[in-house]
């Protein structure tokens, strides 16, 4: 991927020496990485290594959770997202998130997807219809639900609910979608469907996905970042980041090799 191609494309994250502290405890220290646009970047590592924490830095959801403090510099398309004039609420319309467990709102399928656009002030029915249809199509759910958009979201299966949540995140037309182990609570078939959806999505958005499933990372990501917390006293660090293909066949760091060959974690 060359710099010139990236110029027209939005959804580029640049992390410089990012660290996160909770009170006096340093959770993550010194993470620097480049997240390319229109690609899937996977964050892998053993549980408790700060993957999800790092992910939540990217849409400032850490702001909502108690005492987290982020240092360093994170830019999205060149703009510092922790700068004073950056409004976290607006940032989140550009950086969507899909959570570990499917969490549709207790409303109809249509209202779930239309929630984001309505929040941004879209009221026209035709416009909403269009967004809902496009988002559901991109999330590969349209075919299954187009006849009953008025159905309550809770009537969908777990896998369908998760794809609904993806559609909901897409409806605000974000540049980036963050996914926090989006398939960990799903059965194998639903997981497959969600993975297929992700693969198609990178055509439109940048995707950053946290997963503890190595095969999943290998299957769907272009770039992989391996994080590790070597002991409870130390903060988590970024061990290495690189093209997934290379990393899984020829890891640069002993610890990465140990992890992906299943020797710990």
């Amino acid at each position: 991927m060359t710099e010139s191609r990236e110029q027209n494309v939005t959804g580029v994250f640049e992390l410089e020496n990012v660290s996160v502290t909770y009170g006096s405890e340093v959770a993550i220290a010194g993470v620097s990485m480049h997240i390319p646009p229109r690609a899937v970047t996977a964050l892998i590592g053993p549980s408790g290594c700060g993957k999800s924490t790092l992910l939540r830095c990217l849409n400032r959801m850490n702001d909502e959770i108690g005492s987290a403090k982020v240092r360093g510099r994170i830019t999205l398309d060149g703009a510092d997202i922790y700068a004073k004039e950056m409004d976290p609420v607006e940032l989140r319309t550009r950086v969507g998130q899909v959570f570990q467990k499917p969490n549709p709102f207790p409303m109809t399928i249509y209202d779930n997807v239309a929630y984001g656009p309505r929040t941004q002030g879209t009221r026209r029915r035709s416009e909403l219809d269009e967004v809902v249809e496009r988002s559901l199509k991109r999330a590969a759910l349209w075919g299954e639900v187009k006849k009953d958009l008025k159905k309550h979201a809770f009537e969908l299966s777990g896998g369908q609910q998760q794809r609904l949540c993806i559609a909901r995140a897409l409806a605000t037309q974000p540049e980036v979608v963050l996914m926090d182990e989006p398939a960990s609570s799903l059965d194998p078939i639903s997981t497959q469907q969600v993975e297929d959806t992700i693969a198609e999505l990178k055509e439109y958005v940048t995707i950053v996905i946290v997963t503890h499933n190595m095969q999943q990372a290998a299957r769907i990501s272009d770039l992989t970042a391996f994080m590790l917390r070597e002991s409870m006293e130390e903060p988590a660090q970024l061990v290495e980041v690189g093209e997934t293909r290379v990393m899984f066949t020829n890891p640069g760091d002993k610890r990465t090799e140990a992890y992906i060959t299943g020797r710990f974690g």
Binding site: T10, D87, E90, T93, R94, Q120, Q173, E175
Partner: peptide, 10 residues
């Protein structure tokens, strides 16, 4: 995308 973003910003 650019058009949509202009509407959103701020």
């Amino acid at each position: 995308a650019p058009a949509i973003r202009r509407q959103r910003v701020g």
